[in-house]
Simulated scan of single mutants.
Amino acid sequence: MSTNSIDRGETIRRFILENVEAYPSSIAKQTTDKFGITRQAVSKHVILLLSSGILEGQGMTQSRHYWLKVLNEKSITLSLKNQLDEQVVWQKEIAPRLSNLPSRVINIWHDGFTNILNNAIVHSGGQKVAITLKQTAVTTEIGIVDDGEGIFNQIKNAHKLDNEKQAMLALSKGKLTTNTKNQAGKGISFAVKKFDDFVIASGETFFAPKHPKDWNPEPLRPQKNGTLVLMKLYNKTVLTSKEVF
């Protein structure tokens, strides 16, 4: 088999993996249209990905759909009342799970994770924080949820704004934080640039700059009070932390 054939096969399989979340039931058609190959040819690539354990599927023929298999998963809940240190949490709980990633990607995760967790520790006023990590062959996703007052409500009250939407808009521009003397919240604007997906959900307000306006955020809504921050990054991103800053 020629090198060109191998490279083309890898390109096709990479396309399938990177687009299957957007087209779970039509990824075969998307791949056929993209590369001008037959459905039978696409099927061979899909079967290879299924057999390698990084793609999963369900259903028969026309109704069949696919998704990326979660290869690495962790969920922990920590108290915010025991002098929690974001660097310790990173070193003990998160960094070991990301050791398979390129160093430039790990650096972005370190900056984003520790910044967001520090915000929860210092500003949320909550009792606990839940952290989830899910990694597929394509992306890594980390969610941080606290049970505090809620970031947008805190900013609204601290800066005497009319509503939480105004607080969200100000925070997204790096203008305000929950602490009138501390501008650490400017890290939010950097996080938006760093990550391939970045969402903040609190109360009735959502900040999701990389989603279309008709996106439904309901599954992410925190129960009762609190703030959820969701970050997702491609495992082989070409962006570096230094380039962001």
Rank of each mutant, 00 (worst) to 15 (best):
Y234R: 11
R221Y: 11
R14H: 14
G59Q: 08
N82R: 09
V199K: 08
S51G: 06
S189K: 15
T180C: 07
Q87S: 12
K156Y: 10
Q30V: 06
L161I: 06
Q87M: 08
T32E: 15
Q223N: 11
E204P: 08
T38F: 10
F152W: 10
S124F: 15
L98P: 00
K74L: 04
T132S: 15
S25F: 14
Y234E: 05
K69W: 12
V42K: 02
G53I: 05
A130D: 05
Q62E: 09
T140F: 00
K165W: 13
K236L: 11
F206H: 10
Y23Q: 04
G203E: 02
F113V: 08
I37H: 09
S79G: 09
L101M: 07
L169K: 12
L169C: 04
H65S: 10
D33K: 14
D7M: 11
E243W: 06
P212T: 13
P24M: 09
W109F: 11
Q83K: 14
E93G: 04
I47T: 15
K186Q: 15
S51M: 07
T240V: 05
W215C: 05
D197W: 01
P212N: 11
K29A: 12
V244A: 15
L84N: 03
N235I: 07
N118A: 12
F35Q: 08
T3V: 13
G57Y: 12
H159L: 04
T140V: 12
V238D: 14
T136A: 11
A22Q: 14
N82L: 03
D162H: 12
V138I: 15
